[in-house]
Simulated scan of single mutants.
Amino acid sequence: MTLDDLRVFVAVCRAGSLSAVARDLACTQSAVSQHVKRLERETGVSLLERHARGVVPTEAGRVLQTAASEGIAGLDQALRRLRDLVDGEDGVVRVATGATTVRHFMSEAVVAFRQQHPGVSLEFRTESSSRACFDALAGSDLDLAWITLGPPVRGIEQRPVVDLPWVLALRADDPLASRPYVEPAELRAVRLIRLPPHSTSAACLDAACADLGVRLAFDTSVADWDTALLLAELGLGRAIVPALPGHAVPGDDGPLRLVPVRALRPLSVGWAVRRWDALTPLARAFADTVVDSCRRNAPAL
């Protein structure tokens, strides 16, 4: 059993496909299969179940996947810290983010960090959701992930940075645009643009509405917050979205208006890491710079 065997096995479990991992590693599917077979011979148990659409770990496979993921992540982070000790200020900080995260939450911090640490490389990996960010963080050499806070995830620490109040995005000529605020109950009969399906932010909005006994209706769905704002600006619907840093609330310029939605529990966003006390000094410095920037520019209703 080698470290490469375990890395390949974890990658196969995450991708659900031997061929996909073979493409990523630029090797043959047979070579990937040999890594898994070697682990199965040494453990004496079947680790994968093969189906028409790919593979999934068996119960034993899930046990090994969890342990291997945590061990590999810890080893990678230790190796990173050793390299940073050798390289000094010429290190790398690797961050997983959503599609629009850097622009809304990190643009000011990236500039400030680069001025303070000109020799450090920043690498951003775009993921489609907070869940994907968790998976990337657990199975790679990433330092940090920016996420919408949700339920606990094994092997991951979540740290809130800023709470985002909810606003109703609509065109300036909409009858509701001149209101100082709206109540969630007023939106029961309004057809809305839905936040990304199955996303943590959509689940948090549903839960916040359920707390108030309100059920919303939707006729359109989008892949990210920016698309919801764009459709609202074009007059193609209304959207309940989190108030983002840098957006005036209520909005008073241009065709878009942002009207506060009262009484809804805000959306918490922040950092996820494997272990805060194991972060490299450079990764911690970047995380702290983002925290300072977000809290300074946090939207207020």
Rank of each mutant, 00 (worst) to 15 (best):
R194W: 07
A217R: 15
A15F: 06
A68E: 03
A109N: 06
L164H: 10
S293E: 00
V214P: 02
S199L: 04
V249D: 02
S69N: 05
R295C: 08
D135T: 14
V161S: 07
D211Q: 15
W276N: 09
A112P: 02
L279T: 02
V259M: 10
R81H: 10
W271N: 01
R41I: 12
G270P: 06
Q116E: 13
T280D: 06
D143R: 01
V249G: 00
E233C: 14
A248L: 14
V291G: 08
H117V: 04
S128L: 15
L142C: 07
R257C: 08
E49N: 12
L256Y: 09
S129E: 04
R159C: 12
A208R: 00
L216F: 04
E157H: 09
Q77Y: 05
P197N: 08
H117D: 01
A73S: 15
A208C: 10
S19G: 11
P250F: 08
T289P: 01
L205I: 12
A78Y: 10
V120I: 11
V190L: 05
G235L: 06
A11I: 03
R171Q: 13
R94I: 00
C209H: 04
P118C: 05
R38S: 12
V95I: 14
E59G: 13
V111E: 12
P281Q: 06
R41T: 15
R62I: 07
D211W: 09
M1P: 14
V167D: 07
E183M: 14
I193Y: 10
A239Q: 03
P281N: 11
G155V: 05
P281A: 01
S30H: 14
F134E: 06
L195S: 07
R191D: 11
Y181V: 15
G251Y: 01
G16F: 01
S178E: 15
R159V: 14
R296F: 09
D292W: 08
A132S: 13
G213F: 11
H51A: 14
